[in-house]
Design a protein around this nucleic acid. Structure first.
Lengths: 154, 154
DNA sequence: TATTGTTATACTCTATAACTATA
DNA sequence: TATAGTTATAGAGTATAACAATA
């Protein structure tokens, strides 16, 4: 892929070999994920729960399976996340109208509140870190976020 | 999005609010980390072990504490990683010459070989995913990697 | 007493396999 | 039989607290 060539005059060039490129990305992601997992606010929502709650807010009411698919995890993993959200009162479960095998999950008002509040609290670390980046670095990061998201979707 | 455009010359500010920016980054990192953790080669090195072995190669001989610091984990976590690397024959432990409290860890030839091989194997998924990105997206990603790395160092 | 490292323990996150209830 | 979901179980990854050996 791409490695070779191109971008003669092209500015940024991803020069390094595919292997180095991928290795660098892999390590950077691993380490950042470690940091983000640890730097959690105190609202008692873990990173996975927060992510699922955010997906739930976006999707609106949905089934556990749909939520699992949105988060790209297996259903049993989502079962536990939903149970935690329910226990906190951030999500509710209702029976599906016609198909009694299915459950319908929805975010609660309290869930929305916590989502907003946690976003603020939890971003403290990242905001501070971002603050130490140059404008150029910030722009580079901003440009890369959608690319990272696309990569994660594959 | 690719919209970019951005910052003609001045390059200031990555438009979205800090909160959205941070939230987007957080979620993208979480999901990519999930994928990378799962898509491991078959050399039986886990992502954390691979990362530690790469640091060990870079640092040369060092103490467990130094390696833990390089990886930004606590010493007890590194103890387990080192034990796994040792069990596989990818690292060796020797007593420190003067201070008998310390241990000196070093990568073995076999460790180097596995590191190279695993890098290739393990990058299969990511290389394929990268292959579907445009040259522009690749360049954006490449530009962001050192920024992500800096962020993780904080 | 201070430092280096390990052991004991626990929690998060995730998976696969097997099971239940419903269709 | 097929589908939606849960329970049981396991393993990776990490942390804190308590301990041992050495300085």
């Amino acid at each position: 892929m791409a490695s070779d060539t191109d971008h003669p005059a092209g500015a940024t060039r991803p020069a390094p070999s595919d292997g180095e490129f991928a290795a660098g990305l892999r390590i950077a992601i691993l380490r950042l994920a470690r940091r983000l997992r640890v730097e959690r606010g105190d609202e008692s929502l873990t990173l996975s729960q927060l992510s699922a709650l955010a997906s739930l807010e976006q999707l609106g009411s949905c089934s556990p399976t749909e939520l699992a698919e949105a988060e790209r995890v297996q259903p049993p993993s989502m079962t536990r996340v939903i149970a935690a959200l329910e226990a906190h009162g951030y999500a509710v479960r209702a029976p599906h109208e016609r198909d009694r095998r299915q459950a319908v999950i929805a975010i609660t008002a309290e869930g929305r509140r916590v989502l907003d509040e946690t976003r603020r609290l939890r971003n403290a670390w990242i905001a501070q870190a971002l603050g130490e980046l140059s404008a150029k670095e910030l722009a580079q990061l901003a440009a890369a976020i959608p690319v990272l998201a696309r990569l994660a979707e594959r």
